[in-house]
Amino acid sequence: MYDKIVDILCAIKEDQPELRQSLSPEMDLNNDIGLDSLQMIQFMLQVEDQLNVTIDYDQFDYEHLRSIDAFITFLKSCQPQGQPIYEDAKP
């Protein structure tokens, strides 16, 4: 899942080709990566689409953006859109 999120971030921040090498699981999605508000919306929509998950925005909190790992932990608690969100999950 981490690799997929990195792919999404790199696609959104296409003006920063060096981003992929600098990303780590501890990086803050707002402060370190610097997603603006439009990029954050694009990121969330692409995560939902590409990972087949429905983000519960009632449960979503700024704390979930403190690191890529924290965001992944939050995603694992979200409702799948009919398909598993992890590669090794069984339907």
Rank of each mutant, 00 (worst) to 15 (best):
P91D: 13
I41G: 11
T73W: 08
K4S: 10
I8A: 00
P84K: 01
I12K: 01
L45S: 15
I72S: 01
Q46W: 10
N30F: 09
D88G: 00
M27D: 05
K76W: 02
D61S: 10
K90W: 06
Q79Y: 08
E63I: 13
I12A: 01
Q42V: 11
Q42P: 09
I12H: 03
D49F: 14
Y62Q: 14
G34F: 06
E14I: 15
V6N: 05
P91W: 03
S77R: 10
L35F: 03
L38A: 09
L9K: 00
D28Y: 01
S37N: 06
I41P: 02
C10L: 07
L9P: 04
E26N: 09
I41D: 10
I55D: 07
N52W: 13
D69I: 04
L65I: 12
A70Y: 05
K90Q: 12
H64C: 13
L38K: 08
Q21C: 09
S22N: 14
L65H: 10
L23G: 06
K76N: 12
S24I: 02
P91E: 12
A89M: 08
Q39N: 05
M27H: 01
T73P: 08
L19T: 02
N52G: 06
D61M: 14
D7R: 09
Y62F: 14
R20V: 12
P91H: 08
D69N: 13
N52D: 10
Q59H: 13
F60E: 08
I55N: 08
S77H: 08
L65T: 12
A11W: 10
F74D: 00
I72W: 01
N31I: 07
Y2G: 13
D28E: 05
L65Q: 11
D49K: 15
Y62M: 13
K13M: 01
L19Q: 03
G34Y: 00
Q16C: 14
D28N: 12
L29E: 00
N30Q: 15
L29M: 10
Q42S: 14
A11P: 11
H64D: 15
A11I: 12
D15T: 08
S37H: 02
L29V: 12
Q81K: 14
Q83W: 15
Q79R: 12
Q46R: 11
A89K: 04
Q83I: 15
E14M: 11
D61Y: 10
N30G: 15
A11K: 15
L35S: 04
M1L: 09
D69K: 04
D36E: 11
A11Q: 14
I85H: 00
P84Y: 03
D49Q: 15
L23Y: 01
K90A: 08
Q50W: 02
Y57C: 13
P91Q: 11
Y62C: 11
Y86G: 10
F71G: 00
M40H: 06
Q21E: 15
D3R: 15
D3P: 09
D88T: 04
S77P: 03
M40E: 04
I33Q: 03
I5T: 01
I5S: 03
Q81S: 11
D49H: 13
R66G: 07
D3K: 14
K90T: 12
C78G: 08
E87G: 09
M27T: 03
Q81I: 11
L19P: 00
Y62D: 14
D28R: 07
K13S: 03
D88M: 02
M40C: 07
I68S: 07
